[in-house]
């Protein structure tokens, strides 16, 4: 791919994206408009995240790409290969070894550290969009810090269902100012957003970039009598026994039997390597069979 520039994008495009990222850092949670370019993958498949990553990557970086928490899902593989080819950078599946992590729908279980950048792929950056379809209106609402509509919606949920009926892309308020969409991560991940790493959000089709600097106050919206509840499946992981991780539910037979496994494949594999075992760990089964 030597016909293309380092990290695919031309330098002028990178400068434009870099300026937008810095504005995002300066005004945490505010959606900075940027002239998103057509990328060689479709809109909605991570073009925003890919552009942000392309603008950030240095030759010395080690990149990790996850989708649904897993390194080996097809779209994660496709994006990782894209950067291996166009930026000739090192790649890894280990959260700890990565300097730049591009993600779709999850925050890794392993706490991120200073020096790391987490790049989120964002489909709909506007947290108010499903309450008000017009960009001209939602922009005004952010300008005036007029978030009553969002609270009314959440409160209606409680009145109707006894719960806030949002389980992912759960809105947060950043540094007491902007209401922000954390991208479609499960609400289980929301509390992790107050972290040591830089968080960058790219929405290609909607032409928006936003950011959360390290150690920034990120609060999931809630009510005093209905506090935010980052719940998850009430099971341990069937492979590594972890009780504190977000789990995928996998249907394992025609009778609807199921198992629960860590959505973060790297975290789960590492725990298993350390000797942690779950209900359905292969070695345990062998031992049981031997008994």
């Amino acid at each position: 791919m030597s016909d293309y520039n380092f990290a695919y994008l031309d330098e002028q495009t990178k400068r434009m994206i870099r300026r937008a990222i810095l504005k995002g850092i300066a005004v945490p949670g505010y959606q900075v408009p940027f002239a998103s370019r057509e990328m060689p993958m479709p809109y909605g498949w991570g073009t925003g995240g890919v552009q942000v990553s392309a603008a950030c990557l240095c030759p010395e970086d080690t990149l990790k790409v996850i989708d649904q928490g897993a390194d080996d899902t097809t779209n994660a593989v496709s994006i990782r290969k894209f950067f291996e080819k166009t930026a000739e950078i090192a790649v890894t599946e280990k959260t700890r070894e990565a300097t730049v992590i591009q993600t779709r729908h999850r925050i890794p279980e392993e706490p991120l550290t200073e020096g790391q950048i987490l790049v989120y792929q964002v489909p709909i950056p506007e947290p108010l969009r499903f309450l008000e379809p017009r960009e001209t209106e939602t922009r005004k609402m952010h300008a005036l810090e007029e978030y009553g509509l969002m609270h009314v919606k959440l409160y209606e949920d409680i009145a109707k269902h006894g719960h806030i009926a949002t389980s992912y892309a759960y809105p947060v308020k950043v540094e007491d100012r902007y209401v922000m969409d954390p991208s479609p991560i499960p609400k289980f991940d929301n509390p992790k957003m107050d972290m040591a790493a830089i968080q960058l959000f790219g929405a290609g089709r909607e032409q928006r970039i936003y950011a959360v600097p390290p150690y920034t106050k990120v609060v999931s919206l809630d009510f005093e009598d209905h506090p935010f509840d980052p719940s998850k499946a009430n099971h341990p992981c069937d492979l590594c026994g972890a009780e504190h991780t977000y789990l995928d539910e996998v249907i394992i037979d025609d009778e609807g039997g199921r198992m629960f496994v860590c959505s973060d494949t790297d975290y789960c594999a590492e725990r298993q390597a350390e000797g942690h075992r779950g209900r359905l760990s292969p070695s345990e089964n062998i031992e049981k069979a031997a008994e």
């Binding site: 779709r104 992912y168 499960p186 089709r205 499946a233 959505s263």
Partner: peptide, 25 residues
């Protein structure tokens, strides 16, 4: 077309979160 077709991509993490909520309710 990109956004429309992206719903073919895995969304099981979000769906799991929805299932938990529906079960709980």
């Amino acid at each position: 077309t990109g956004f429309l077709e992206h719903i073919k991509l895995p969304h099981y993490v979000d769906f799991q979160s929805e299932m938990e909520l529906v079960r709980k309710m």
